[in-house]
Design a protein around this nucleic acid. Structure first.
Length: 434
DNA sequence: TTTTGAGTTGTTCGA
DNA sequence: GTCGAACAACTCAAA
């Protein structure tokens, strides 16, 4: 007689505390099996067999497994396409209910619908929840019922809603004794998934009250730890968004705004999934990008001859993280100075960033290129030298990421004033003709 | 329906 | 050195 259970399918919510789907699963009448599926459809697209993010996920799952074991359970890891994985689960157990948290990316929406159908065809209940954002999909709409495309009014409505409803709580951690009592032998290794174990080298999160309260003063200075560096943890749901928003709401409205931007871009992608391939402002797809591959390669390697750009790219290449101010500078440089399609930069960041998240990466690249909703006006061209004077005047950040700065004598890939005028001309012409 | 005010993060130029 | 205007109009959101 197979055991009757509920399955909680983890994806980008890798925590046992304050997890909405897990909480609801644990409150179901059946013991809960925690499951993670290494999805070949996602993993096979990764070019680096030493991808730090895979190790990061794997390490996190090991920790969750230890917590499960404390409760007499195990975290069940599978490596199959999702349909096969669920067929295995449905075969090995008498699964009564499946619980999971929403994921808003087009691939994930389609994937989850396929599993929903598979489950329901077997007479298994399929329950999904909002967990990775405070407000999702169409929670925040204009008075005419359409989604916002301008951040500031969206943000105002978001705050108003948050003030009205506050934050819900899903104390899943209190009910872990309802996990299925099971011991799984032969735990899946990273090698079996096709990856090599590496140290993700994560920077610890800085959520000290004082740091958050100073955020609006320090966030633009890449040489100091003025940002929370929470993004990789938030991206995989290791930290709960409800917890971060609560902190932000109490401590710093500028920081809260950044969390609202995250939800804004997720909402934009949900309603306008075509932004993955096209400019939000379609006119901007008329820009004749130069797309010089040698120049792109130099940008990737951090050899443009502009120290602030090169330092940023080297920080990204070495650590998988880049300070936000510097992300704007390097992104603007690629699009404006080099006139390279923002999609190229977006794809490179997607490969490298530990905190890579489709909607934020896309939204921010389109912002830098000027093509996004509510983006920088096209004639705003960052001057790398001025940006350095303003935000890294003592060259501390630059010297941190450019080894032996005294021997750094790269000729600038393009002269600023020339590139600025060229960008303004090309953009102006393309937008006027469109 | 029309009007009004506003719109993440800058830079350059010239008075 | 400081400051306002130009950069470019255009679209959005709300009253």
């Amino acid at each position: 007689m197979k055991k009757e259970i509920s399955v909680c399918w983890f994806r980008r919510d890798l925590r046992l505390n304050d997890n909405c789907a897990l909480y609801n699963a644990l409150c179901s009448p059946y013991p809960v099996l925690a499951v993670f599926i290494f999805d070949p459809e996602i993993l096979d697209k990764l070019t680096d067999r030493q991808d730090k993010r895979v190790s990061f996920i794997y390490d996190t799952l090991q920790l969750l497994n230890i917590d499960c074991q404390r409760n007499g359970s195990s975290f069940y890891l599978l490596h199959h396409d999702v349909i096969s994985a669920f067929k295995i689960l449905f075969n090995d157990f008498k699964v009564k209910k499946v619980f999971l948290n929403h994921d808003y990316e087009p691939y994930a929406i389609d994937r989850d619908l396929r599993i929903k159908k598979l489950a329901e065809d077997e007479g298994i209940e399929f329950h999904t929840f909002k967990d990775q954002v405070i407000f999702e999909k169409s929670d925040i709409l204009k008075s005419d019922g359409l989604p916002y495309t301008v951040f500031t009014p969206y943000s105002a409505k978001w705050r108003q809603r948050y003030a009205e409803y506050g934050s819900e709580e899903f104390p899943s951690e209190k009910y872990l004794s309802n996990l299925l009592k099971i011991s799984i032998s032969g735990v899946l290794s990273l090698n079996e998934i096709g990856f090599v174990q590496v140290d993700p080298g994560l920077i610890p999160v800085n959520l000290h009250e004082a740091a958050i309260m100073d955020y609006h003063h320090t966030r633009n200075l890449p040489a100091i730890k003025g940002t929370s560096q929470a993004s990789p943890y938030l991206r995989f749901g290791i930290i709960s968004i409800r917890y971060l928003v609560k902190l932000a709401h109490q401590l710093n409205q500028t920081w809260l705004n950044e969390l609202i931007w995250r939800e804004f871009f997720m909402m934009i992608m949900f309603h306008f999934p075509e932004v993955i391939f096209r400019s939000f402002k379609r006119k901007y797809d008329k820009i004749p990008w130069r797309n010089n591959e040698q120049e792109f390669d130099l940008w990737c390697k951090g050899e443009t001859g502009y120290p602030i750009v090169d330092a940023g790219m080297r920080q990204l290449n070495e650590t998988g993280w880049m300070h936000n101010r510097v992300r704007m500078i390097v992104a603007g440089f690629l699009c404006k100075h080099l006139l390279i399609d923002w999609r190229w930069g977006e794809a490179y960041f997607a490969q490298k960033l530990l905190d890579y998240e489709l909607s934020s990466n896309n939204g921010n690249w389109q912002w830098a290129a000027g093509s996004g909703c509510d983006s920088a006006p096209y004639f705003r061209v960052f001057n790398p030298t001025l940006q350095t004077q303003k935000f890294d005047p003592k060259l501390i950040y630059i010297k941190t990421w450019i080894n032996d700065f005294n021997k750094y004598h790269l000729t600038p890939i393009v002269e600023h004033e020339f590139a600025r005028k060229r960008a303004l001309d090309v953009y102006k012409k393309a937008l006027n003709e469109a």
